[in-house]
Simulated assay, not measured.
Amino acid sequence: MVTVATWNIENFFSPGTEFGPATQAIFDRKVALLASTITSAGVDVVALQEVGDLGAFDALLAALGAGWTGQLSTFFEPSHAIRVGFATRIPVTATSEYADIPLQLQGVPTDDAGAALTRMGRGALRVRVAVNGNDLDLVSVHLKSKLLSFPGGRFQPHDEGERARYASYALLRRAAEAAAVRYFANDLLDGHGTTRRLMVMGDFNDGVDAATTQIVNGPPGSEIGTGGEDQPDAGDGWRLLNLAPLIPPDRRFSRIYRGNRELIDHQFVSRALRSSIQSVTTITGAVALPSIDDRATARKDAPISDHAMVVSQLDL
């Protein structure tokens, strides 16, 4: 049995940095709570999002203890250097990264100046681990947030026209990044999804039925919980199955936004992994999940993430 998780650990920076907490004590508490939540859940590999500086990442690995190692993406936006990564107590045998927006979508505008989108804001990172002699490829991703920012670093628009435009830019960017993730999955599957064990997971910043999330699924049909789930078809070599329907209904959320529960963190598996899934749930740890709003800097000193960890058990 292997336990695999994904967790957005929310602006994880060392104290004294631009986005970090005010004091070392606040940082130390967050590290301890992150590590204890991962350990208590019996996690073997966790895909991480919003990892900031390397010092913070090293502190988390040290808190997890002997045998834990980590990998971080080299792709991130310099203005806010959060990136995806992995912490694992299973040795990594191979890695690769992906960040290119598909050529046909590189004309997607990202602001009023018409700057084109050529690369994901946070690249996707793949690690390969071996479990009982079986190769398992795991991908960590973090798509564009629905939180809007405006020219000059503003978080409030000058007017409703500007708000509407930048909401559209964010949606277009998230859709283009979802397509990039799908391209990466295509490369890794190469049509062999019935035999290649692949899990793509992370913060997709949208719900199960959102168009951007659906892009990652691949060919429609045979989704978990549908009548065609157990019927092989020609799309199985490329399809990714969202594990969301397997989460108990009362746990089917990973964030609370303005009082509303949302599942925006997902785990997708190739057909070869579907029969291995034993359970899926969300875990919030010792501190209750808060309800958040659009104030981007309000949680710099928060004791733990505003996301729940999504955890699955696989029998390999």
Rank of each mutant, 00 (worst) to 15 (best):
P91E: 08
P91S: 12
P91R: 04
V92Y: 12
T93L: 01
A94H: 10
T95R: 11
T95S: 13
S96E: 14
E97D: 04
E97M: 03
E97S: 00
Y98M: 05
D100S: 08
D100R: 01
I101G: 13
P102N: 08
P102C: 07
P102W: 05
P102L: 01
L103V: 10
L103A: 14
Q104P: 00
Q104M: 01
Q104T: 03
Q104F: 00
Q106L: 06
Q106G: 09
Q106Y: 08
V108T: 13
T110P: 05
D111P: 00
D111W: 10
D112C: 02
D112T: 03
G114S: 12
G114L: 07
A116P: 09
A116C: 06
A116L: 05
A116H: 12
L117C: 05
T118P: 05
R119V: 14
R119W: 14
R119P: 09
M120G: 01
G121C: 05
R122D: 03
G123H: 13
G123W: 05
A124C: 00
R126V: 03
V127M: 08
R128Q: 15
R128S: 13
R128Y: 07
V129H: 05
V129W: 10
V129A: 08
A130E: 15
V131F: 02
N132M: 14
N132W: 14
G133Q: 14
G133E: 11
G133D: 12
N134P: 01
D135L: 12
D135S: 11
L136D: 11
L136R: 03
D137Q: 04
D137T: 01
V139W: 08
V139C: 05
S140V: 07
S140W: 06
S140L: 10
V141W: 04
H142Y: 04
L143W: 00
K144G: 02
K144D: 04
K144R: 06
S145F: 13
K146V: 06
L148T: 08
L148D: 13
S149C: 11
S149V: 09
P151C: 06
P151K: 03
G152H: 07
G152K: 05
G153D: 11
R154W: 10
R154F: 06
R154N: 09
R154M: 03
F155E: 15
H158K: 13
D159P: 00
E160G: 13
E162N: 13
A164V: 05
R165C: 02
R165L: 10
Y166Q: 05
Y166G: 03
Y166T: 06
A167E: 09
A167T: 10
Y169R: 06
Y169C: 02
A170F: 03
A170D: 04
A170V: 01
L171A: 15
L172E: 07
L172T: 08
R173P: 00
R173E: 15
R173A: 13
R174Y: 00
R174S: 02
A175M: 03
A176S: 09
A176K: 02
A176F: 07
E177I: 08
A178Y: 12
A178V: 10
A178H: 13
A179W: 03
A180L: 00
V181K: 01
F184Q: 12
A185H: 02
A185N: 10
N186Y: 15
N186T: 15
D187L: 10
L189H: 06
L189Y: 07
L189Q: 07
D190I: 01
D190P: 00
G191R: 06
H192Q: 07
H192K: 11
G193H: 02
G193A: 08
T194I: 02
T194R: 04
T194Y: 02
T194A: 04
T195N: 09
T195H: 12
T195P: 06
